[in-house]
C-alpha cells in the first residue's frame, strides 16, 4: 500500500513521497526503510516519520536490540578472552571490547575490569555478519562519558523508552533533576543504569522512568511531582 509521512505503516508498504525527494537530492533512510530497485519499501511496523529536510525513518515499538554503529550502549562483561572482553549488549551475539580501548590502558597497564562489570561503551563496528565491537574511549583516547559503571542499578526497558527520555522535549529528566541527586546512563540497547544516594531514591527514579513510557508530557510532569512529594515525606 502507498503510504506517506505520519501514517501507520507495515512491512511491504512503499512510499513514493520519499522516492520523489530522492530524485532531487540526498535522502537519509533511517531504520525501517529499504531502497529496492523500484522504490522505497517499509521493513518495520510503526509510524513513518520525517525530519526536515530529508531524513525518514520508521518509529516502531521494539525490545530486541540490533547493534548499530555510533550508538552508546550498556553492556555486561561476561567473559575475559585473552586480549578482549566479551560483553553482552543484548544483541544476537556478544560484543568484543579490547582491553586497550580504555583510557590510559597499555599492554602492561591493563584496566581493572572483571566479569559481571557493567560498562557504558560506544559501538565502533556493527555489521550484519560480524561480531560487534565496542570501545570505552573516544577518537582522542579520552574516556569522556564512557567506561565502567560502578555501583548503581541496571534495568531493561523498550528501545522506545530510551529514545523518549533522551528526547530534549521530554519533561521527565527536567522535572526530576532538581529533586534529588542522581546519575543515569541510558544505553540505546534498552538498558538503563541509575545511581542515587539511597535505595528509596533509586527505586523512585526507576519507577519514574518506567512509568513514563505511555504517559503524555503533562502526565509525566504530574507523576514526577507526585513521586517527589512522596519521597520528601509529605505523603506517606
Amino acid at each position: 500500500m502507498k503510504v506517506s509521512v505520519g501514517d501507520v505503516v507495515l512491512p511491504g508498504d512503499f512510499s513514493e513521497e520519499i522516492a520523489a525527494v530522492g530524485e532531487k537530492g540526498k535522502v537519509i533512510l533511517g531504520p525501517g526503510l529499504r531502497k529496492e530497485v523500484d522504490g522505497i519499501y517499509i521493513t518495520k511496523a510503526g509510524t513513518l516519520k520525517k525530519r526536515a529536510p530529508n531524513t525518514f525513518w520508521v518509529d516502531n515499538y521494539q525490545k530486541r536490540y540490533i547493534p548499530a554503529r555510533g550508538e552508546n550502549v550498556i553492556g555486561i562483561v561476561v567473559q575475559k578472552a585473552g586480549d578482549i572482553f566479551r560483553v553482552d549488549v543484548g544483541g544476537s551475539c556478544t560484543a568484543s571490547l579490547s582491553y586497550l580501548s580504555f583510557e590510559g590502558a597499555t599492554k602492561k597497564n591493563r584496566p581493572k575490569v572483571v566479569n559481571g562489570d557493567v560498562v557504558y561503551a560506544k559501538m565502533l563496528v556493527a555489521s550484519k555478519d560480524m561480531e560487534p565491537e565496542i570501545v570505552c574511549v573516544d577518537s582522542h583516547g579520552k574516556k569522556g562519558r564512557l567506561g565502567v559503571l560502578e555501583d548503581g542499578f541496571v534495568f531493561k526497558c523498550s528501545l522506545n523508552l530510551i529514545r523518549k527520555i533522551l528526547n530534549p522535549e521530554c519533561p521527565l529528566l527536567n522535572s526530576l533533576k532538581n529533586e534529588w541527586p542522581f546519575e543515569l546512563a541510558a544505553g540505546m540497547n534498552g538498558r538503563i543504569w541509575i545511581k542515587a544516594n539511597t535505595m528509596r531514591e533509586t527505586i523512585a527514579l526507576g519507577n519514574a522512568i518506567l512509568g513514563s513510557e505511555y504517559l503524555s508530557n503533562d502526565e509525566i510532569k504530574s507523576m514526577c511531582t507526585n513521586i517527589a512529594s512522596i519521597l520528601a515525606g509529605h505523603i506517606s
Partner: peptide, 21 residues
C-alpha cells in the same frame, strides 16, 4: 542519492545518554 542509516541517533535529536544531577 539514498543513504541508509541503521541507527535512530542520526534521525532523532537526542541528549547524550550519560547524565548526572
Amino acid at each position: 542519492n539514498f543513504i541508509s542509516e541503521s541507527s535512530f541517533i542520526f534521525c532523532e535529536t537526542m541528549l547524550d545518554g550519560r547524565l548526572s544531577f
